[in-house]
């Protein structure tokens, strides 16, 4: 279970300091998959990096809990040890570190260069066998990077998965491949009460939703959730109206057409 409570986050220092997330709350139960839509500049990246504990983000108030434990101040790796996993939008290329080294890292087999059987198995399924001995992400295409990310995350087997723009920069075929695998990984093929894995998918495209069943959607604009509701309705609305003029096209049209609650504090319902 992930619980973000009334978190406010700013970036930069001194006069440059700028609030990005504003009193944002999010609650994801075990077995649930939520999707967060938002245009560029809405705070999606800040939200992802705050959840991960990346340096450079100041938490002004609020806290983040995983399974009841406060992780707000923990370093990245200790969050990961508590079950957090992430599929990055732009994973960096690391020269000299092979994709297989990353696999061994998540499998906690750091002292070997061998390709472990589970790695070989997933590399085959994701058509990444030829990449295992290559420097991770170096010279990989968009789709190859995403498949490498998905391979690592499946091997890591986190209980809570964060997917940052999993469908951006990826061709249709690859979105389908990784979408179907993630749907299975997140146990969406099981009955709701049998699902244990939870996830948050952050996206501005939503194409992945054709393959991954989601429970709830949120629209992030200017560091706040403007509305939350049924993913299909909200997505249909965004497809129709886009994200331009967030306040107008998202807020009112979503409110009117998707019928969700608008916590904008104005009292207008």
């Amino acid at each position: 279970m992930l619980d973000i409570r009334n978190i406010s986050v700013s970036v930069g220092e001194g006069k440059e300091r700028k609030p990005v997330l504003k009193d944002l709350s999010l609650h994801v139960e075990d077995g649930e998959v939520h999707v967060i839509f938002g245009p560029n500049g809405s705070g999606k990246t800040t939200l992802v990096q705050t959840m991960l504990g990346y340096p450079g983000y100041t938490i002004d108030s609020g806290k983040i809990e995983i399974d009841g434990a406060d992780i707000t101040q923990l370093p990245i790796n200790e969050r990961v040890a508590r079950g957090l996993g992430v599929v990055f939008q732009h994973p960096p290329a690391v020269r000299g570190i092979k994709l297989n080294d990353m696999a061994n890292l998540v499998l906690k087999k750091k002292n070997t260069d061998d390709v472990l059987p589970e790695t070989a198995d997933w590399a085959k399924r994701l058509n990444m066998e030829a990449f295992l001995k290559r420097d991770v992400n170096y010279g990989f295409s968009g789709g190859e990077k995403k498949r490498a990310e998905v391979m690592q995350i499946i091997l890591q087997n986190p209980s809570f998965l964060l997917l940052d723009e999993p469908d951006s920069g990826v061709d249709v075929e690859n979105v389908e491949i990784i979408g179907r695998l993630l749907n299975k990984f997140l146990q969406r093929d099981l009955k709701p009460q049998a699902r244990k894995k939870a996830a948050v998918i952050i996206t501005h495209l939503g194409y992945l939703l054709n393959f991954v069943k989601t429970d709830r959607a949120h629209v992030l604009c200017d560091g706040q959730f403007l509305c939350s509701g049924d993913p299909k309705e909200i997505y249909a609305n965004i497809l129709k109206n886009g994200f331009d003029k967030c306040q107008n096209s998202c807020l009112y049209s979503v409110r009117e057409e998707a019928g969700c609650v608008v916590p904008d504090g104005t009292g207008r319902e």
Partner: peptide, 17 residues
């Protein structure tokens, strides 16, 4: 940060790099 997000401590990540 990337290696830490895969479970390495900061020192382990530095030494791997």
């Amino acid at each position: 940060n990337y290696l830490m997000a895969r479970g390495a401590t900061e020192d382990e990540a530095t030494s791997m790099i």
